[in-house]
Every structure is written in C-alpha cells, then in structure tokens.
C-alpha cells in the first residue's frame, strides 16, 4: 500500500487555478523531492496532503485512508504525518522541551515522564539535547528548524512533509538542517520534500518531481531529471537554478550591452 496516493487533484484560490490535476504516488521509504518555480503549486500540493488546504476535487489517500472523505477523522490522520514549515512555527511561549512534548501529552496522552523521555531522544537525534530549556527566540534559525523536526518526529509519524525547510535560513545554516534530513532519509523515513536545494534532491531523493503551472511536468530518478531532462521547461528551470550566472540577457529580454 502506498504511503501517499493522489489522483486527479484540483485546487483553486478564487479564480486562480493552483493545481490542475495532480497524480502522485509515494511508496513507503521513498524520498520524493518536488521542485519547480515559485507559484507552480508545490507548497499547495504538500499542504493538501494533510488537508491544511481543502482540495476542490480529486482524492488523496494517506496509508490507505482517504483524507478527502468528509467523514475522515483528519486529526487522527495528521497524528501520523509530521510537517516541517518554512517559517519553523515553533511555539514561542514554550521551551524547546515543551514544544516537543505538548502534542505528545495533549494528543497522544503520554505521561509527562514518557513524553520527556521521547523528547530527549528526538532532540538528541537532531543534536539539540542541550537546548531543551531554551526558548525558540534564543535559538538560531537552523536550530529552530531542527527542533521543529524533533517536534514532528516525537509523534512517531509514518510520513514527513517538508515545505521549503531551508528557504528562510541564512546560507551557513542550511547544511545542519539538510544533514538531519539526510539522516532521516537514511533511516528509511518516507518523505515528501518541497525544496530549492537541488544538490539535496539529486543526492537524497528516490524520485524528483518537477512542477510548473499547477501540473507535474516531469518526474523520475534524480539522475534522469537532472542529467537528461525530457521536457524543455525542466531544462530551462534547471539552467536558471543551477547556473544563475550563465543566464544570458537575451533569455530575459534585457539589452544592457548594445
């Protein structure tokens, strides 16, 4: 059974059609990276998986449960899906330890001792066991994002969603977050990752999905998508992202050196 199975997903914001018929399958243990230009619908696709956005039509199944079914207990499904946001979204009024324990205690009804133990294990996994007593504001962006990952892991998810997890970070802090994600992938975690980190996608992904204009343009193993992309749009996007200093004036319609 696939961890995620999406069929014919459509989503509009007002008149703007953001997703125009997405079909996507993620199998257990796979790491699927979604790449594409801004506004291509990548984040919306990710947010539909745990119903942060309500799809207009189509079906989404997570571990066999149809989340798009109106009778689905979405809170129960979300317990099994960890999510990491671009802006970290740590709870500012709680310490690092409380951030990692609050849902364990309130949602999973674990005892304080049990929740603390699991928090320590997961903070240790992301290398931040010594920061348990700190408040989020006292941490760097990279540390906050690692706490956010630990917070999600403490719920024992069978699937992790990453929504541009390194896009809000200073360049020198990107590496520590990617290292944690690479470690998770190596442990066999099923991951759906929206990212602009092409090197990460190339190295870690089992499959890369290129989206543009609300549709999946091309997907396949990273070696194929990056090495010999079939579609012109994919080639153009990769050219602009991977070789930004080689983008010529004629490509963007500028006339600086007449």
């Amino acid at each position: 059974m696939s961890t995620i199975r999406i069929d014919g997903l459509h989503k509009s914001f007002g008149k703007l059609e953001v997703l125009r018929g997405i079909d996507l399958v993620v199998d257990p243990g796979q790491v699927v990276c979604v790449i594409g230009p801004s506004g291509s619908g990548k984040s919306t696709l990710l947010r539909c998986v745990n119903l942060l956005e309500e799809p207009d039509s189509g079906s989404i199944r997570v571990a066999g449960v149809e989340v798009t079914d109106p009778d689905c207990d979405i809170d129960a499904v979300r317990r099994g899906i960890g999510m990491v946001f671009q802006q970290f979204n740590l709870f500012g009024h709680l310490t690092v330890r409380e951030n990692v324990t609050i849902a364990q205690r309130r949602v999973l009804k674990r005892s304080r001792a049990e929740a603390d133990r699991i928090a320590t294990v997961n903070l240790d996994r992301v290398g931040l066991a010594d920061k348990a007593g700190s408040y989020p504001a006292q941490l760097s962006g990279g540390q906050q994002q690692r706490v956010a990952i630990a917070r999600a892991l403490a719920m024992d998810p069978q699937l992790m969603l990453f929504d541009e997890p390194t896009s809000a970070l200073d360049p020198e802090l990107v590496g520590e977050v990617l290292a944690v994600m690479r470690g998770l992938a190596a442990e066999g975690m099923t991951m759906l990752v929206v990212t602009h980190e092409m090197a990460f996608a190339r190295e870690v992904a089992s499959r890369v999905v290129f989206m543009d204009g609300g549709a999946i343009v091309e997907e396949g193993p990273p070696a194929t998508v990056f090495g010999s992309p079939r579609e012109e749009r994919t080639r153009e996007f990769l050219h602009r992202v991977l070789e930004p200093t080689r983008v010529s004036e004629s490509e963007i319609g500028a006339h600086l050196t007449d």
Binding site: L52, D75, R78, I81, G82, F91, G92, A148
Partner: peptide, 17 residues
Amino acid sequence: PKGQLEAARTLGMSHTR
C-alpha cells in the same frame, strides 16, 4: 501568526485544543 495554529493542527490537535 497563522502558522502557530497550523503547526498545532498538524500535530493532531483539534481546533479547540
């Protein structure tokens, strides 16, 4: 920030919780 509610809901909390 709206992200606070989203993060909480993502962890499986009900709206009230």
